[in-house]
Design a protein around this nucleic acid. Structure first.
Length: 891
RNA sequence: GGGCGUAUAGCUCAGUUGGCUAGAGCGCUACGUUGACAUCGUAGAGGUCACAGGUUCAAGUCCUGUUACGCCCACCA
């Protein structure tokens, strides 16, 4: 298997990625089988819009899902990650309209409903799959055979069934309500699709003359053009300034209409002038007032926010902002303007159209939400569904407990057409899966449903609901959901409600909310700012594994991520490091048999460094497993990075070279341990870096051509017993090895400080602080010499003999290392350094002693803390003694 | 107005029930191509943990308040 062909010096991601992904897919490794008898693990993708292209947000989100999917696959679960796309009604429709306008100079109205829909499907075939193809580049192990689209036949059935069922239950109703209207998309929007922006505006004060000529009222508004639809002026019923005017009328300027002055508590005497113009058809509050006072609802606007004929012939046809200018001009001309104030206020914008929305009265379909919310609130409260980080639960509760009815009808064509039919002769409404069959004059509702009305069914509709499919039985409820907190209301909350209402079960058990990705200046990534890197370019430059690894590495838990492309160097360099570690191993000879279980090695013959490595490896395995269970991906990745780079490469590989050079049995053992450790590392990393780990597992000969690392077991911690066995029941050994490495570090520092080239052999003297250390270091002589690049190292418990020439030294916890320089030493510099050290140690001792002399510390602190403090103080004192001795010997 | 989050090295961030001298990566400085790796190695500089109080033997960690930044919700005639 391992053919000993020399591996390239650097990891080349492109080739490896191109090779493995098609193979994985062909061999159906991603496919979950409902009859496997294994434990199911399922996850549904947050369906990206078909108009979308891959962004870094998707990269983060899908990397996390892939980590979970691959991890569970390696844990032996039957995994299915259900992929698919969302038809994204408004976004797609406006996108295709733009496309048609550019390409053919045609549009919705010209083509008609049927032809337009045909064109949208055509567009979808041509461009709609982009993001799904791009996900493959990332390495996403989606169960592609189960890919679905929210407008698929099956999913559309689910939507109709849900609509009918909610209608029959009385939860869906049709009504004339105040809704949010987008003048660009020309459709109603739900409250969630309105975003509030702080903008500069003006506050206009002007006069409404009393009809009896006895004076005027001053009203104030930010939207003077709406006065054309005013039905009244309201004052507070108890306001002494205006109380007596209630029942009179004012002449509404520019219109020739007389409108009443009414008393209504909505008017706040403390705000503005205390008089409020009431425009019931264009303001939510005025709508309430108008309903209470049975005022006329005067709709003065067209669908595109131009004024209609009810605004008066001077204004009809004008755009709302043109109209505002004209109204102001005309008020001015009539001498009615009082003052204009600059203000900053919040204005609702259409999420898709990015223009201010209009609130207006319109006939729409709604879902009554309060009953649906109840079990969904309970599920999160009881912990059946858990949020990570859990603080999002508060946001969730707040919204759910104040939930408003959901406006679900949209005046567009691309979507699920509402399954309601009107009989214009009888005035009946029929709602059903199919249209009525009685041959009557039925006309289907023109409107379609809000996109989210299909998305909220996603976790079960994607599995074939309402049919009782094998997938549904085996994979539902799903386990984890990974999504952004920005769609907690749009999607997460609604899915939970739908899950309980239609399947009687929760749709998923855990929800992990990802961080928001920003650029390195902290700005949101957006196309218009041009600060949104194309992940495919990043993959081309750095590799998919590098991107995946880096983005997890830099993702702080539950906070925003500051991303820039050069951060991907972390992952690229790490991949390269791993590659070269394997390359080094491969240069030593063919794969041994023990790489899975370390079989064939007498454990009593393991070197201290090998035991140390195995212990450290086990530690990181424990941490990685726990971290993944707790969704602490970032932590897992940091720990693995550390152990691979520092523990394994910096120390263990270097250490292993001794055995490797010895040859024979020592070499065989060194190779076996390297293989064992490497194979565990590769498996540990596979969920994070799927491509390189698969490639290396094969390069190293751990796996045959017909095998995949995807189905190898994820490393689990050794049992306590086995660990004890490996460690030879000798935990002290670890400290000894750590102490040895510290001494070596100190020895190297001495060389650097005295500008001795690292390549030059040196002689050292080590004073060991204990007999155990002395004998340990002596038994490790070869390793010490090798790692220090020294030709001679003397170890003893005796002090260094100054007669041999002054020598700079460094202290570690287990010993003192000297670099005799035969007169080359800069005594003054050494003394300066030592005196500084002395001062520092004295300071520490002082602090330590004052703590120990504090009676309440000794009395109240736990015993072990006190004991440790005492031991530490003792240690410091010893150090001080040694430093003093050195100072004396040098001066 | 209500809620949430954040503030630790030049930068980005760890620091999980309070407990040795606060860590990492990047960047920076010096040296270095010793047969895995310059996408590298060795060593080093760099922090009054936002501020002010409090609790405690002990506070980066807990409490209160202040400041700054960010987000969400509500309201704004």
């Amino acid at each position: 298997m391992s053919d000993n062909k020399e591996m390239p010096k650097a990891y080349e991601s492109a080739e490896v990625e191109k090779k493995w992904y098609p193979l994985w897919e062909e061999r159906k490794y991603f496919h979950g089988n409902p009859d496997s008898g294994k434990k199911p693990y399922s996850i549904v993708i947050p369906p990206p819009n078909i108009t979308g292209i891959l962004t870094l947000g998707h990269v983060l989100n899908n990397t996390l899902q892939d980590i979970l999917a691959r991890w569970h696959r390696m844990l032996g679960h039957e995994v299915s990650w259900f992929p698919g796309t969302d038809h994204a009604g408004i976004a797609t429709e406006s996108r295709v309209e733009r496309y048609l306008k550019e390409k053919e100079n045609t549009g919705r109205e010209e083509l008609g409903r049927e032809e337009f829909m045909r064109r949208v499907w055509e567009w979808r075939e041509k461009y709609g799959g982009t993001i799904i193809r791009q996900l493959r580049r990332l390495g996403s192990s989606c169960d592609w055979e189960r890919e679905r689209f929210t407008l698929d036949e099956g999913l559309s059935d689910a939507v109709r069934k849900v609509f009918v069922s909610l209608y029959e239950k009385g939860y869906i109703y049709r009504g004339r309500r105040m809704i949010n209207w987008c003048p660009v998309s020309k459709t109603a929007l739900s409250d969630e699709e309105v975003i509030y922006k702080e903008v500069k505006g003006k506050f206009y004060h002007y006069k409404y003359p009393l009809s009896d000529g006895s004076g005027h009222l001053v009203i104030a508004t930010t939207r003077p053009e709406t006065m054309l639809g005013d039905s009244a002026v309201a004052v507070h019923p108890e306001d002494p300034r205006y109380k007596h005017l209630i029942g009179k009328t004012v002449n509404l300027p520019l219109t020739g209409r007389k409108i009443p002055i009414i008393g209504d508590e909505h008017a706040d005497p403390a705000k503005g002038t205390g008089c409020v113009k009431i425009t019931p058809a264009h303001d939510p509050n005025d709508f309430e007032v108008g309903t209470r006072a049975r005022l006329e609802f005067i709709n003065i606007m067209n669908k595109d926010a131009t004024m209609n004929e009810r605004a008066g012939q001077d204004y009809a046809g004008l755009d709302r902002y043109e109209c505002r200018k004209k109204v102001l001009h005309d008020l001015e001309a009539a001498g009615l303007m009082v003052q204009v104030e600059d203000i900053i206020h919040n204005v609702g914008y259409s999420e898709r159209g990015d223009v201010p929305i209009e609130t207006l009265v319109s006939e729409q379909w709604f879902v009554k939400m309060d009953e649906l919310a109840k079990p969904a609130i309970e599920a999160v409260r009881s912990g059946d569904i858990k949020f990570y980080p859990d603080r999002w639960a508060k946001t969730y509760f707040h919204w759910m407990e104040n939930i408003k009815d959901w406006c679900i009808s949209r005046q567009i064509w691309w979507g699920h057409r509402i399954p309601a039919w009107y009989n214009d002769t009888t005035g009946e409404i029929y709602v059903g899966m199919e249209g009525p069959k009685d041959g009557g004059p039925w006309r289907q509702e023109e409107d379609v449903l809000d996109t989210w009305f299909s998305s909220w069914l996603w976790p079960f509709s994607i599995m074939g609901w309402p049919k009782e499919t094998a997938e549904l039985k085996f994979f539902y409820p799903t386990c984890d959901l990974v999504t952004g907190p920005d769609i907690i209301f749009f999607w997460v909350a609604r899915m939970i409600m739908a899950g309980y209402e239609f399947t009687g079960e929760l749709p998923f058990k855990n929800v992990y909310f990802t961080s928001i990705i920003r650029d390195d200046l902290g700005r949101k990534l957006s196309k218009s700012l041009g600060n949104s890197p194309d992940p495919l370019d990043v993959i081309d430059t750095y590799g998919a594994d590098a991107l995946r690894f880096s983005i997890i590495y830099i993702a702080p838990v539950g906070m925003d991520i500051r991303y820039s492309n050069d951060k991907c160097e972390i992952g690229r360099n790490f991949a390269n490091k791993l590659w070269n570690a394997c390359r080094f191993r491969q240069m030593q000879g063919p794969t041994t048999a023990g790489f899975r279980e370390l079989s064939g090695i007498d454990q009593s013959k393991l070197t201290p460094d090998e035991k140390w490595m195995l212990f450290k490896l086990d530690e990181v395995i424990v941490m990685a497993n726990t971290a993944l269970k707790e969704y602490r991906f970032h932590f897992a990745v940091h720990e693995i990075y550390e152990v691979v780079w520092s523990t394994f490469c910096d120390w263990f590989i270097e250490s292993s070279k001794i055995g490797l050079r010895q040859g024979g049995e020592a070499k065989a053992q060194a190779i076996a341990v390297l293989d064992f450790v490497l194979f565990k590392i590769l498996r540990l990393l596979h969920p994070f870096m799927p491509f390189i780990t698969e490639e290396l597992a094969h390069q190293m000969g751990f796996l045959g051509d017909d095998q995949t690392i995807m189905y190898e077991s994820f490393p689990l911690p050794l049992s306590e017993k086995r660990l004890q066995c490996i460690m030879d029941k000798n935990v002290e050994l670890l400290n000894m090895v750590d102490g040895k490495f510290q001494l070596i570090r100190s020895g190297r520092a001495l060389k650097v400080n005295y500008n001795i080239p690292a390549g030059k052999k040196a002689s050292y003297y080590i004073k060991a602080f204990s007999p155990a250390n002395e004998s340990f270091l002596k038994s490790e002589m070869e390793s010490v010499k090798f790692l220090l690049n020294a030709d001679e190292v003397i170890v003893s418990q005796e002090d260094y003999n100054a007669a041999d020439g002054a020598a700079p030294s460094q202290m570690s916890n287990t010993g003192m290392i000297y670099l005799p320089l035969k007169g080359l030493i800069d005594v003054d510099a050494e003394l300066k350094k030592l005196n500084e050290q002395k001062r520092q140690i004295e300071g520490w001792i002082k602090g330590s002693e004052s703590k120990l002399n504090n009676k309440s510390f000794v009395d109240k602190a736990p015993e072990n803390v006190v004991r440790e403090a005492q031991a530490h103080c003792e240690e410091l004192k010893q150090k001080l003694v040694r430093v003093n001795e050195l100072i004396i010997s040098l001066s």
